[in-house]
Amino acid sequence: MQAPLTDQQIRHLAQEWIPSGAPAPALRLFRDTSDFYDIEYGDVVVLEDRPFLVRHNAKEGRFGIDDEVKFWVKRAVDLTDGRRKFLKLVFYEKFMTRVGAVEFECFRSPKKEARILELTAGHPHFMQGYAARDARGNVVRVIDHIYGPSLLAHVEALRRRVDHAAYFHEHLPGILARFRPAVEAIRFLHDHGEKHGDIRRDHVLIDRDTGLFRWIDYDYNYRHRENIYGYDLFGLGNILIFLVGGGDVLLQDLADAKHPAREALEAADLNIVFHHRVANLQKVYPYIPTDLNRVLLHFSQGCQRFYEHTGQLLDDLERGRLAAPATPQETTP
């Protein structure tokens, strides 16, 4: 077993990453990460004898949290091998979340994310990483970078290039074929008693190397009530509606465009939680096959029986599978 690096050795390693000519920073070493606000660019976090040079605080833009600085998430370099990592430091936070008209208490759970990282180690549809304890016992998550756009950015980019009909016929079959294994990955979590907790279209990254859809960010949690996986299923439904619609189809946009479908839409056709979004997309795009549209209706106000588990959604997705286009368009980004 190798002896732990001395502070002097760590400083020497860190120095190699400081641009030449720049003044040597007063290098600070943190073995206790409790005060994450105090850990800044140029500091070194030491976790279980492994040093990480902090480069920036992360922003949600790419990582999953909305373009504001997240002081508890640091972009860093592992000084032992030069690999880029995210360090997610412990931030216990309880807060009320509002989804549509429903409000509920959420909290961040480092332990939950650490458990899922262990559970999904080597799984191609999840971000990879591990948990390490700092000197104070804080469960810090060390996360590998995933290079590639979010599912949100990917679909938005496609829709800037093509209209819905072209998107639907040429691109969507491939997207749905790749989305299905991501849903199976969520079923894998549920089968092991875990929930993702924050399923959103920007929490799926499309791996530039493999083309696979990969889930990120599992530290969100909430005290579930009767249906432990209901909120995850809602997230999957929202992504599906977004994918099939090639974006959110909003009542106001249809009204502004004087779209003929606007008058035909009823309350039952709208998203069960977000009442300004259309779920019954077949009324707007009649070429959407009924079997696929039926899946979307499970997330509409008109739904009489909700999905209780991911397996039911997967079965219906199989029935609603779209035929591949003659010339497949959906390729690795």
Binding site: V99, G100, A101, V102, F104, H224, R225, E226, N227, G230, Y231, F234, I272, V273, Q301, C303, F306, E308
Partner: peptide, 15 residues
């Protein structure tokens, strides 16, 4: 519960 709440969190009595 509202329909939205029942959808998101489930209902003990309904189940």
């Amino acid at each position: 519960l509202s329909r939205s709440e029942e959808f998101l969190f489930g209902s003990i009595s309904s189940k």
